[in-house]
Computed example of a mutant assay.
Amino acid sequence: MRAAVVSSFGGPEAVEVVETGVPEPGARQVRIKVAAAALNPVDAGVRSGVFGGAGKRIGLGWDVAGTVDATGVATAWSVGDEVVALDYGVVKPLGTHAEYVVVDTDAVAKAPATVGAVHAATLPLNALTAVQALDLLGLTPERSLLVTGAAGAVGGYAVQLAAHRGISVTALARKDDEDLVRSLGAAHFTAGEVEPASFDAVLDAAVLGGAALEWVRDGGVFAGVIPQAQPASVRGVRTGAVEVSADGARLAELVRLVDEGVLTLRVAGTYALDEAAKAHARLAEGGVRGRLVLVP
């Protein structure tokens, strides 16, 4: 089968599409025939060596939508099931940017019924990150929340999920994105003019760090999206950062919200698997709204 990998670190040109063996599922695993797989910033980080792994051939891709093709023992999934899944891991021999991928059965959820595979592939990593970050914040509806990077994939899901919970969301994004983030459910918008200590909580999807921490009121809460990279606590503000986990049951809840029209799946463009390097180059240009998706 074909798979996108990196054997040496660098820019988009470092991405190779190679021939490799089809992986076999073990106990409590399933093999998915990939219909679509989103490209995320974490893939660019893996490609450029941010997470290490020098000297290894590293597979790319975390998100997948497709069809169960084979199963190991002790799994409730059947061949032919249409599914989505998160294949967690930054340094792995194969990822979801391939024709087939093996994942743990507990990472899998039934695919949305209301959208195709290309859109479904944009859900797992970013929506799970958003909902797990909101869990970390632990907000009740009367609390105020600022979401930075609200027009991005994680930020956009965070806005929709928080608004669905009845939380008053202020979206921080570029001025040109105001209509977009308001359509996602933001009650308020700012392009950067934020008073210090003015929100009960900040979900920092834009990775602004200390600058965003200043916008949290004394005793409030801050959640980042890069594990262990949150700023130190000040003024009694509780700080933390989500490390996304593959959670099929939680992913199934997010799929239900897609089918109910609560979550919007945004595709910025599609590329053939053989064009993986070209997709990385487009991501590196910036300004992508939604996710680029690879189709084997």
Rank of each mutant, 00 (worst) to 15 (best):
D247E: 14
W77S: 11
Y100A: 13
Y88K: 12
V103R: 00
L123K: 03
V15E: 10
W77F: 12
G138H: 03
I226P: 01
S245P: 00
Q228C: 04
V244W: 02
L137D: 02
P141N: 04
G224Y: 03
V262R: 04
V79G: 13
V115Y: 00
T71K: 03
V237G: 04
D104K: 12
A121M: 12
V73M: 12
V181P: 05
A268D: 03
S7V: 13
A117S: 15
A206L: 05
V73L: 14
A163E: 09
H164A: 15
R143D: 14
V288R: 02
V258S: 14
A276H: 08
A107C: 11
G59C: 13
F222R: 07
T71I: 11
G66F: 04
L263M: 04
T148S: 12
T71E: 00
V46K: 09
E253R: 14
L292D: 07
F199W: 06
G59W: 05
H188M: 10
A252P: 00
R182H: 05
L139K: 01
A284Q: 06
G156I: 12
H188E: 11
G269H: 10
K56S: 01
A76L: 10
M1P: 11
A186D: 10
T75D: 11
G59P: 09
V68L: 06
A130E: 05
V237K: 01
A74D: 15
T148W: 02
D81R: 11
R235K: 08
L172E: 06
D218Y: 03
V101M: 13
V102Y: 09
A74M: 13
A37V: 02
R238M: 07
P227S: 10
Y271T: 05
S168D: 15
N126P: 05
V159I: 07
T71F: 05
V131M: 09
R165E: 12
W62G: 01
V225E: 02
V262M: 03
S144W: 05
A163G: 11
P41D: 03
N40M: 07
L203N: 02
L273K: 13
A201C: 07
R31L: 13
V90N: 04
G116L: 04
T190Q: 05
V18M: 13
T114P: 11
W62Q: 12
A229N: 05
V194P: 03
G166A: 03
V22T: 15
T148R: 07
I32A: 09
A65T: 04
A252T: 11
H97I: 08
D87M: 15
G49H: 08
A98E: 08
L86M: 05
R165G: 08
A70W: 00
G138C: 09
A133Q: 02
D63K: 00
V73E: 15
A113Y: 01
D179Q: 08
A187S: 15
P23N: 10
V84R: 10
K110R: 14
G152A: 01
